[in-house]
Amino acid sequence: MGRGSGRREERPPRGHPAVPAGAALLVLLPVLCLLSLLVGTGSSSPARALDYLLGDPAARADPQLRLAVMDVRLPRTLAAVLVGVCLGTAGCLLQAATRNPLAETGLLGVNSGAAFAVVVGLTWCGASSTTDLLLWALCGGIAASAVVLLLAAGGRAGGSPLRLVLAGAALGATFHGLTSYVLLGSQATFDVYRYWTIGSLAGVRTGDILPLLPVAAVGLLLAAGCARPLSALGLGDDSARSLGHRPGRTRLVVAGAVSLLAGCAVAVAGPIAFLGLLAPHAARALAGARTAAQLLLSALIAADVMTLADVLARVVIRPWETPVSVLLAFVGGPLLVWIARSSRLSTAGAPS
């Protein structure tokens, strides 16, 4: 193909569904964020919350309303957007790099490494606060991914999809076994751990999110830098090399970005299933083979879905709350079955 055709692949043609879909998703996100600030499990009504946001003096003087809007709902809203963007981007990167349409963010051992680190922190290092769990989960997820990268980088096929998947599966199984062993000997640790591992945004504070923003920003910058090499990688490793790219190095950079992004998401919300798997499928259906458009749409779709799911989690069994991961599992399970049975599955992640 000539240079002109390569440029046309990078820029969606006029009237392509990716353009209006991206605009609609971008407009929908602040609407959902506003809804998240207005709706909660407490007694504060959406109308009163809206009065507070609009600066009504009587509403601003209500300490209970301020607590509900600013100290409970605002951090959860920010966390939902952050987790969605991280998981959507990480899942899209991983599926593109491995050419595996069923790849998700736990593939590199992030979830299992974070879980083991949380258990170690609770059992032997005196971790007790939410901030402690965040730091242990983030460090554990990144450390586990780093080990996977080291295991996958050796040999002539260093960084290949098969080596990444095998290393991630082996390390994930090892951490899962170690986590179970530690939990069997500590009932107190298990009592705390089971609430973290179910996946929820309840109890998140603004102070817990701010330290993770630079980590997520680095991951997103790496993801943006990988868009063009991943587009070439979709043509096959040999074609990518002929275009001047290095597939092994590209996959290692992708794995590093996925580690940072998924580590942030797991640290904030615990293991969240299906979102990082399904958002890239929806983005690919809208954007086609354009990797940069896929990344953007996947991040927006996941952020919208995560925010909406968190709002629904507060009202489904009101006045109690449903963990957001449970709602996503109810939706994600049937969709995953449909994807697995789809005739397009074999061509979704790699060229035929």
Rank of each mutant, 00 (worst) to 15 (best):
A61R: 05
F330K: 00
A58M: 15
A23W: 12
Y195H: 05
L233P: 01
T98H: 07
A240C: 12
G177W: 01
F190C: 04
D62C: 10
V27M: 14
Y181R: 12
T291V: 15
R156P: 14
L54E: 07
L275M: 12
R344V: 07
V268Y: 06
G349W: 01
Q294W: 02
L278W: 03
T105D: 09
R246S: 13
A232Q: 02
A47Y: 14
Q64A: 15
R318K: 14
L166K: 06
V218S: 06
V324N: 04
A279H: 03
R249Y: 15
V165S: 11
S180D: 14
R341W: 11
I209F: 03
W136I: 01
L26W: 12
L135P: 06
L171N: 07
T307I: 07
R99C: 08
P247E: 04
A216L: 06
C125H: 10
A153S: 15
R7Y: 14
V324W: 02
D208Q: 13
Q187F: 10
G225A: 10
R14E: 11
A302C: 13
S259R: 06
L134N: 11
I339G: 00
R251P: 04
W320S: 15
Y193G: 03
L312C: 11
P12M: 12
L164K: 03
T206Y: 08
C264M: 00
G256N: 05
V268E: 05
L65I: 10
L221C: 14
G185C: 10
A292S: 11
L210A: 15
L178D: 00
A283W: 01
F330H: 01
L278G: 00
A23M: 11
C92K: 03
V253G: 02
A103P: 03
R344K: 10
A273I: 03
W136A: 05
L67D: 13
V337E: 00
L212H: 07
D304I: 03
P271F: 05
V72G: 03
G288I: 08
R76E: 11
R14A: 14
L150E: 13
V316M: 09
S43C: 11
V253D: 04
R249P: 14
A273N: 05
R14D: 14
P63R: 09
L233S: 00
L222S: 10
V72N: 01
V337Y: 05
T347D: 09
P46D: 05
T197E: 07
G40W: 00
A144Q: 02
S112Y: 06
A146R: 07
A348R: 06
R290H: 12
A153N: 13
